[in-house]
Design a protein around this nucleic acid. Structure first.
Lengths: 211, 211
DNA sequence: CCGACACTATCGATCGATCGATCGAACGTC
DNA sequence: GACGTTCGATCGATCGATCGATAGTGTCGG
């Protein structure tokens, strides 16, 4: 791993564990095995480093979501894929996703606008799937926007508690959350047999992790 | 409002908005309209102030939950009350609940142990209701513990987005979330007519807010 | 093949600013 | 004059960031 990669990895780890403001330049330097001065050969300001982490992470999630739902016209299959992908990403990369989800307030106005725009674009995929499902009569929810936010928070929460050392493997987690989401959306089908393997492959490829 | 109350209110507001580490003693002093020296007549260290906020907030939620579920043997009614109470507390007191939910990492080991113990006691109420419902055959979930965490995260997320200026009033929000939760738990009843008004009253009384 | 120069990577030392916290003094009220 | 409040001044520590210096690495003209 190059020094530049070590700096990024150190930032993801420490920002997730102690927060942006709780992490000092010297903490970063120690974790990356560099002097605090050398850090600045691989980053701009500390905030630039945070923005880079958030933006690339969100961009990656967005691309993965587009890939996982490509060619799926069925809103149910699309939402299942979105839920599975979101949950897998948060369970497999908890540090990175926690930084993205928790440190938005630490950004300056300009940087926050960039990051929020990416997040809104991503949430738009969820909104479209829910809207299409409601129009097709496969979802039944009085407040689709509220339900979308509720489901997103539910899925993001995975990063706060999931441990790969627990009894539930990643695939079981994704299947369970997909079922929770479809139930909450009032989807009548008792068991949906849509294969989530394409989703797992996208995760394995995009995040370079075994699933 | 006394100076002591102003200090606490300032801390809740700023800790929620900028995080514990992102809030300086001088920020606190300015918000509370005191000098930074005077602050220390009403608090111990900055961390003591955070611990006091978290512990009393959790204690209040715990007491309210006990009161709202008192005398309800039916697990469905109990879970509905727990969901409604949790959502209402997070929607009505977003700053305080955000501090409780997001700043646990900022605590020292000893203080964190105290806070986590309170949180575990509270989550135990949820676990018991879900377990009882599963045993009674009114809930159907393969992984009750995972479902419990998913629902808790879903409900806590309300503090991150709900605005009282939106179209959805507090009561509608609580009813909607209760339905989402019961659906996710595989509760067969289409419409549950349990009255949530006792819950609203507990919220109004415990947090001294109109609902 | 060599010396000169450019470029990248790294560091110790240190900058001014801000951090959390404390001091002694002054204030008002009873 | 005792007590509860408040404050300006200031403490040592740490903050994010920069400086000039020092190696190492490659490139190119002769």
């Amino acid at each position: 791993m190059s020094s530049g990669e070590r700096v990024r990895a150190a930032a993801v780890k420490l920002f997730a564990a102690k927060g942006f403001h709780g992490t000092g330049i010297r903490d970063l330097a120690q974790e990356a095995e560099l002097s605090s001065a050398s850090l600045y050969h691989y980053m701009g300001t500390k905030e630039d480093l945070l923005v880079e982490i958030m933006a690339t992470s969100l961009r990656r999630l967005l691309d993965a979501a587009a890939k996982a739902t490509a060619g799926a016209g069925d809103p149910v299959a699309r939402l299942r894929a979105l839920v599975a992908l979101h949950v897998l990403a948060h369970a497999a990369q908890p540090a990175e996703t926690r930084v993205v989800d928790n440190e938005v307030d630490a950004l300056s106005d300009a940087a926050r606008a960039r990051v929020v725009a990416l997040r809104d674009e991503y949430e738009g995929l969820w909104a479209q799937a829910i809207e299409d499902g409601a129009a097709a009569g496969v979802f039944h929810t009085v407040y689709p926007a509220v339900t979308r936010l509720a489901l997103l928070e539910m899925c993001s929460g995975v990063a706060r508690w999931y441990s790969p050392r627990g009894p539930l493997p990643l695939e079981g987690l994704a299947v369970h959350y997909a079922e929770l989401a479809l139930r909450a959306l009032g989807h009548p089908g008792e068991v949906t047999v849509t294969d989530l393997r394409p989703c797992l492959e996208v995760v394995a490829q995009v995040w370079d992790v075994p699933v």
